[in-house]
């Protein structure tokens, strides 16, 4: 740490190479529409997971669109292009929280609400349990269990360190098992 500060003060610290998403952002700023489509495909599952962890499924698609449009308008204000994943995740969290505050409290029902023991009812039950977990746990859990992303992928997209993602996944999974009564004998 001390060495880093010393080298940074002398201007000799190596600049980290541009990541693929940073190159995409550069192309978007130059007006490349194809780059924006690629960027969308790369980060849409992450944004979907973050939003789904907070709001009901019916509103998720609209919020995703808003998040990407907001990001598109503000790409110029992004200083470190390598940190675009964390920046986009923050926009998604803010949008979802804002929507959650403005919307009236509703109870999301499963599509086959009348039938007990069906797969949709079970999925709804699991997702509701995940949503009751703390913020730090619910996002990695949704990305891992719903979106099917691995731990390293979650860390890469969100800009978090792999260690913190791993810890949050482990603790979140443990909490979810308790809530769902899995493994309790």
């Amino acid at each position: 740490m001390t060495t880093d500060l010393f080298l940074f003060a002398r201007g000799e610290r190596e600049v980290s190479p541009a990541r693929p998403e940073a190159l995409l952002v550069e192309r978007i700023c130059q007006g490349d529409d194809e780059a924006f489509s690629e960027f969308y495909r790369m980060f849409a599952p992450m944004v979907h997971g973050i939003v789904l962890a907070r709001v009901s499924r019916n509103d998720v698609d609209d919020i995703i669109q808003e998040v990407f449009i907001s990001a598109y308008k503000n790409f110029d204000s992004l200083r470190d292009k390598n940190a675009v994943g964390g920046w986009l995740a923050m926009i998604a969290r803010n949008r979802a929280t804002e929507f959650f505050r403005q919307s009236k409290p509703t109870e999301e029902l499963a599509e086959d609400v009348g039938r007990t023991g069906s797969s949709h009812a079970r999925a709804h039950e699991i997702l509701s349990a995940i949503r009751t977990c703390p913020d730090a746990y619910r996002e990695p859990l949704v990305m891992r269990l719903v979106e099917g992303m691995t731990g390293p992928e979650i860390a890469e997209r969100t800009g978090l360190t792999p260690e913190s993602v791993r810890v949050n996944l482990h603790r979140g999974m443990k909490l979810l098992r308790e809530k769902l009564g899995i493994g309790v004998k």
């Binding site: 924006f36 489509s37 969308y40 495909r41 849409a44 599952p45 979907h48 997971g49 789904l52 499924r57 698609d61 995703i64 990407f68 797969s119 949709h120 999925a123 699991i126 997702l127 269990l145 719903v146 979106e147 099917g148």
Partner: peptide
């Protein structure tokens, strides 16, 4: 939870 997974939309 696969039913809730992200499905490709038009950007």
């Amino acid at each position: 939870l696969k039913a809730y997974r992200y499905q490709e939309m038009i950007e």
